[in-house]
């Protein structure tokens, strides 16, 4: 036990002494949370609009006033002909032109359609503001996220990405570094069991990941105002399963990689990219082609992020996420088994 503790202590010192890495490790969640919470948004806002108002009716004038007053649109200019307005859009000085032509010809919207999603939303919003429909019989209720904050969607995603990064990258690099520096040889020859070496290495990173998890949850709750609707116990419990999974993955990478550079590139590009792309953190899995959906089925963060979205934001009980948690646990066990079995207690040469 004493050996174990001194191991953990030594590993913690490695982490704590590298100030810059520490700064990034804690700065990253904070900055990401702030960015996603406040800066990154797909809301329609400040759309640069050109008005062609040659034949402006009374109704039309009211529409323009409503457009100007709305936070969605910023009227940057007026043009006299539709062609001139289109030139505005084409020269990147405006995103949208609204042509109020004569009564008969109705209203024409000229939209910069480079971004199909945004183009569609601009057009829809513009139509709504212009038409100003009286409140109809439809009543819309947004479940779980009434203010439509994107942070609700992203907080679990950030957790999924950062925990994976910290655990997998840091452990793999720290093990490979011992190989490169030759200290691994001494550790292996020492009376300490190899399993203990590995576990002792993982413990500080586990603690670090838990602290980061805490930082994220606190920021989510008190800075971004994301309610932690579900049971905190299960949120932490599932996260710890995920952290262990990430640690096992890190160990696996360190078994494969010979140099620090390779371990870093493997975890940065080969591991991180699929996570960002296929886990559903940014892009919904349902919209992918079937082949990629299959591929995403083996990406662990997919299940973690899904589970966290349900547990944290929707506040459902653990019973509703049993599938995800079950898959995570199985993956963790499988990865642990593979990585421990492939861990070499002897050198290749």
């Amino acid at each position: 036990m004493k050996k174990f503790l001194s191991f953990v202590l030594k590993e913690s010192k490695h982490i704590l002494r590298d100030r810059r890495t520490m700064l990034i490790l804690f700065g990253m969640p904070v900055v990401l949370m702030l960015l996603f919470g406040f800066a990154i948004t797909t809301d329609v806002r400040n759309v640069r609009t050109v008005i062609v108002a040659d034949h402006l009716s009374a109704q039309g004038r009211q529409s323009v006033e409503r457009l100007a007053a709305s936070e969605y649109f910023t009227i940057v200019s007026t043009a006299s002909t539709p062609a001139e307005a289109e030139r505005f859009v084409r020269s990147q000085k405006a995103d949208l032109a609204i042509v109020f032509a004569s009564e008969k010809r109705g209203i024409q919207l000229v939209v910069d359609g480079a971004d199909p999603n945004m183009a569609q939303q601009w057009a829809t919003y513009a139509q709504q503001v212009i038409a100003n429909p009286p409140s109809g019989p439809v009543n819309v209720k947004m479940l779980y996220n009434p203010q439509m904050k994107s942070a609700y969607n992203f907080v679990p995603a950030i957790m999924g990405m950062l925990l994976m990064l910290v655990c997998a990258m840091m452990t793999s690099v720290s093990i490979v570094r011992e190989k490169e520096r030759g200290t691994m040889e001494v550790l292996l020859v020492s009376p300490v069991r190899p399993l203990m070496v590995v576990v002792a290495k993982a413990v500080p990173y586990l603690l670090l990941a838990v602290v980061i998890l805490g930082v994220i949850l606190l920021m989510a709750r008190f800075v971004l105002g994301v309610p932690l609707a579900g049971s905190l116990f299960w949120i932490v419990a599932v996260s710890i399963v995920y952290i262990i999974l990430a640690l096992a993955l890190g160990l696996l990478i360190s078994n494969v990689a010979q140099t620090q550079m390779m371990a870093l590139l493997l975890s940065a590009m080969v591991l991180l990219m699929p996570i960002v792309m296929l886990s559903g953190m940014l892009f919904p899995v349902e919209s992918m082609p079937v082949a990629l959906q299959w591929l995403s089925a083996i990406v662990p963060p997919r299940y973690y992020i899904e589970a966290m979205r349900k547990l944290m934001i929707m506040g459902v009980g653990i019973g509703e996420v049993l599938t995800e948690v079950g898959i995570l646990v199985l993956m963790t066990l499988a990865l642990l088994a593979v990585s421990l079995l492939t861990f070499k207690t002897r050198l290749a040469r």
């Binding site: 797909t42 829809t124 429909p133 109809g136 019989p137 439809v138 009543n139 819309v140 209720k141 947004m142 479940l143 779980y144 996220n145 009434p146 439509m148 904050k149 994107s150 609700y152 969607n153 919904p284 979205r309 934001i313 929707m314």
Partner: peptide
């Protein structure tokens, strides 16, 4: 009367879904 309740954990999905649905109802009406 219509009540649309959308799961908006994913804000885009929620708002797009309810917007499309409102559109269909509106067209009908």
């Amino acid at each position: 009367k219509y009540l649309i309740a959308a799961n908006s954990v994913n804000g885009t999905k929620g708002s797009m879904g309810s917007a499309y649905l409102s559109q269909i109802i509106a067209q009908q009406d």
